[in-house]
């Protein structure tokens, strides 16, 4: 195997992604303000800007949440996922601008500290029509800040992938808070029912794609019934695995990716050490299992990243018997 190491910093695809992202966000804001100014010439500029920023961030959050399941359903969406963290940070900055401008507009220049005013102006939590929606947005913004601030790989390694992933799963809590923020705020003041219909459609699409991706993943799993022999568990039919690809099977409580590489079976965890990407949906490149999300690589026999990298995923002993791949549920220990 010949390996050449090269630092990956700002690759061409990242640059293209970021240019499209920045121009897309700027275009959305510009179009929203222009449409507002044309259709409602009496509207004030700051009102249009606040609405444009909030709407842009909310639409971007929907896109971010849809990319993950879309990639599970069709690998061709993976280029949208590769630099999704930059989209997340852009979304946070847009939402933060919406929040800051709103606080300036609605709470500053008064007889109270703007942040105190934000928290104390409306305490009608027992009323549906008067429910305080701004605090919901503030809470969501704090979650999005935590995620944006820890989005760099430095924090991924410092916090460890499981903690980092759990922290970033809070995006669903933020999304729920923002749906409530919109429902108790803008939608209650809307003159038409269509913004509510669109918000409901967005929620349905996000939930539906996640459900579809979950069902798709279950269907792709090996259908073999749980049988054990000599401590090994029957995982899948060996001939059903394409060369360089994997079948995923539940071995005990773990999802294990069983790869066929150069005609032999290898079993490693299905969960990438980087961002918990689905290794079983990857393939072998240069003798290494390559994650479909960000291209992290692991040797199929040991689960170790090729040197000098030190990432690792659990590897499992496996063998072929009677046309089936049998996997031992205990990960192999590799010291050092």
């Amino acid at each position: 195997m010949s390996v050449q190491y090269q630092a990956i910093t700002w690759s061409r695809q990242k640059k293209v992604y970021d240019v499209l992202l920045a121009s897309g966000a700027a275009g959305f804001l510009g179009l929203f303000v222009a449409a507002g100014a044309v259709t409602h010439p009496e509207a004030t500029a700051e009102t249009l800007l606040i609405r444009a920023l909030g709407t842009c961030a909310f639409v971007m959050l929907h896109l971010i949440l849809c990319i993950g399941p879309l990639c599970r359903l069709d690998k061709r969406f993976l280029p949208l996922l590769y630099n999704r963290r930059h989209m997340g940070v852009t979304m946070f900055l847009t939402a933060a601008a919406h929040g800051v401008f709103s606080i300036i507009q609605f709470h500053s220049s008064g007889d109270e500290n703007p942040l105190v005013s934000l928290l104390s102006s409306n305490t009608r939590v027992n009323s549906l029509s008067a429910f305080p929606f701004q605090q919901l947005g503030l809470l969501a913004l704090l979650i999005l800040f935590l995620m944006a601030a820890t989005s760099h790989d430095f924090w991924l390694h410092t916090l460890t992938p499981p903690v980092w992933k759990r922290l970033h799963m809070l995006v669903y809590a933020a999304y729920g808070l923002l749906v409530a923020h919109v429902a108790f705020g803008a939608l209650q003041s809307a003159a038409s029912v269509w913004p509510a219909v669109l918000t409901g459609a967005g929620l349905t699409i996000v939930a539906g794609l996640h459900l579809a991706a979950g069902i798709h993943e279950r269907r792709r799993d090996s259908p073999l019934p749980a049988r054990t022999h000599d401590g090994f568990v029957a995982a899948c039919e060996f001939d059903a695995i394409p060369e360089g690809r994997a079948t995923v099977a539940m071995i005990g409580a773990e999802r294990v990716a069983i790869f066929k590489h150069e005609g032999k079976p290898y079993a490693i965890s299905n969960v990438c050490a980087h961002q918990n990407g689905p290794l079983g949906e990857g393939r072998t490149i240069d003798g290494c299992v390559t994650c479909p999300w960000h291209g992290y690589q692991f040797r199929p026999d040991t689960g170790m990243s090729p040197p000098p990298f030190q990432d690792r995923v659990p590897a499992y002993r496996c063998r072929v018997d009677s046309g089936k791949v049998w996997v031992h549920p205990q990960p192999v220990r590799h010291d050092g």
Binding site: G24, F32, A35, A43, C56, V59, A190, A191, L198
Partner: peptide, 22 residues
Amino acid sequence: AALLAAGLAWTLAAWRAPFDNS
């Protein structure tokens, strides 16, 4: 995605509650 976003931007900006003549 860009066309959908553009449609949403225009539609949501235009669908707002009527503004006062002030």
